[in-house]
Nucleic acid binder design. Structure first.
Lengths: 262, 262
DNA sequence: GTTCGTCTCGTACAGTGTTCGATTCCACTC
DNA sequence: GAGTGGAATCGAACACTGTACGAGACGAAC
């Protein structure tokens, strides 16, 4: 049993002396295609066409399409940097990292759909998490808390940007400018939330703002909450509650319950 | 131009008197299929087979496959409840909602891949957000801040659970028990992070915990941060910084920049 | 010149979402 | 009961998809 875990990063890459096609070219072309036309447009045949080669030639350099997705995802991680120590407080560094990550996701809207298909083990992802761990280590977090702090921020960023992107996609598809999107969507919302007058009243407020700045404020709100919460934990210090009982609240479902599909 | 926005929820459903097939049956069967075999297994032909009908018969009740995904997503939203007012503090309510949401995602691991394909406008999603907005209104948040608070929590939950699910998927595929997963993955990590000794040292700590409780601690850590951060904002009160300048920090990229694909 | 690994690629297979037109079925009117 | 019309189902077909397989092409080593 126990078929071992496999990923692009666990296999040795093919020798780099390939003349016409290389893993790097494939990844670059795939990112271009994804950026230009979205996730659905990435097919092996179209990728081959863009590379000026047959579709099945790609399979010599890559095991399957999922591996390409692993590679392009790591390519995006490569665009991210963590501000070096000394030149900024950890709060500023965390803020600017989160903003840079959001911008990177906006440049490559397909990444949110690729994240979650497989764990990120590429070199860029690895060295990025190392730099982030060091950042929070310098901030004063210890042990696993460093890892948790990194995860909290990156999870939040991917989590918020995902719905942001679906609204952007709606705007792009319908051709409505983002400044008019909220107003244009009002009839839809009135229909859909017809028997929720309180909700409609809240939505009416949205007309005063354009979508982009509203989403930006939304992003900043949650990010500030998280960083304030991290700061609070830091201020409580090592004399705070021991790990495992760090939050005194009821846990409705056992966190360890496992309903993973067979 | 301006092709208007369309969604299942903007169209009138077909008359409910269908004898052998109904939208409800389709959705229920689709959820069963998705839970049992995952997102890739959901095809119109397999869904039709499960319903004892032809694949194309489904198109009478539903415009296309994406609409089915909208419907099943809202079905999952229907499993979530928000604790009523009075019986708990907003902190407790927010905690228990977040935990319930995580559990619901674990029961339906495919939802994280469906979220983000389209905005959630189904009746269950609508009434859920209304209840959440009321919760934070009672907590003391005003105006758009209520919306931002809801978004912060739900975004975090979807964001953290996504990588949790990919590790669960690895465990399921390789047949490795979650208590042994961290140890089993160590060789892979040693290969992948060979030139990052600091990172490897950190990963070595993981062997003392099993994946599930480590992930649960991770989830609780970030959730506590967020709720503490919300609390802090509440404590700062209305005499705090005005909206729009609520966080004094450099914003590396203009938040309103729009790189959406054409 | 032959042989061997590297690399490309055409063909083929099973499967996908969706369109279209034909067909069945049922409630209704005359 | 016969006839009509819409609701609903479904088979065939189309243009795709990812990928396995095997036949070739290329260059270097012997």
């Amino acid at each position: 049993m126990n078929q071992s875990f496999s990923s692009v990063w666990t296999r040795e890459p093919r020798t780099a002396k390939s003349p016409t096609l290389s893993r790097g070219q494939i990844v670059r072309a795939a990112v271009e295609l994804l950026d230009a036309e979205g996730l659905e447009a990435l097919s092996m045949r179209r990728l081959g066409a863009r590379l000026g080669s047959g579709a099945t030639s790609i399979y010599w350099h890559v095991a399957n399409k999922d591996e390409i997705l692993e590679l392009v995802l790591d390519e995006v991680y490569g665009e991210l940097t963590v501000p070096d120590n000394g030149e900024a407080t950890w709060r500023e560094a965390a803020f600017s990292f989160a903003y840079a990550m959001r911008q990177a996701i906006f440049r490559h809207p397909w990444v949110t759909r690729v994240i979650g298909t497989t764990p990120a083990l590429g070199p860029n992802a690895i060295s990025l998490t190392e730099r982030m761990l060091n950042l929070f280590a310098r901030a004063g977090f210890q042990g696993l808390d460093r890892d948790y702090a990194v995860s909290t921020i990156t999870s939040y960023v991917t989590g918020v940007t995902t719905p942001e992107l679906s609204w952007k996609a709606v705007a792009a598809k319908t051709g409505i400018d983002s400044s008019e999107l909220n107003a244009a969507l009002l009839p839809t919302l009135e229909k859909v939330a017809a028997d929720h007058p309180g909700l409609l009243a809240q939505y009416a407020e949205f007309n005063t703002l354009d979508t982009d700045t509203m989403r930006a404020l939304n992003f900043d709100f949650g990010l500030t909450c998280i960083i304030d919460g991290l700061q609070a934990r830091l201020d409580r210090g090592a004399d705070g509650p021991p790990p495992g009982s760090r939050s005194a609240h009821p846990q409705p479902g056992s966190p360890a319950r496992d309903d993973a599909p067979g």
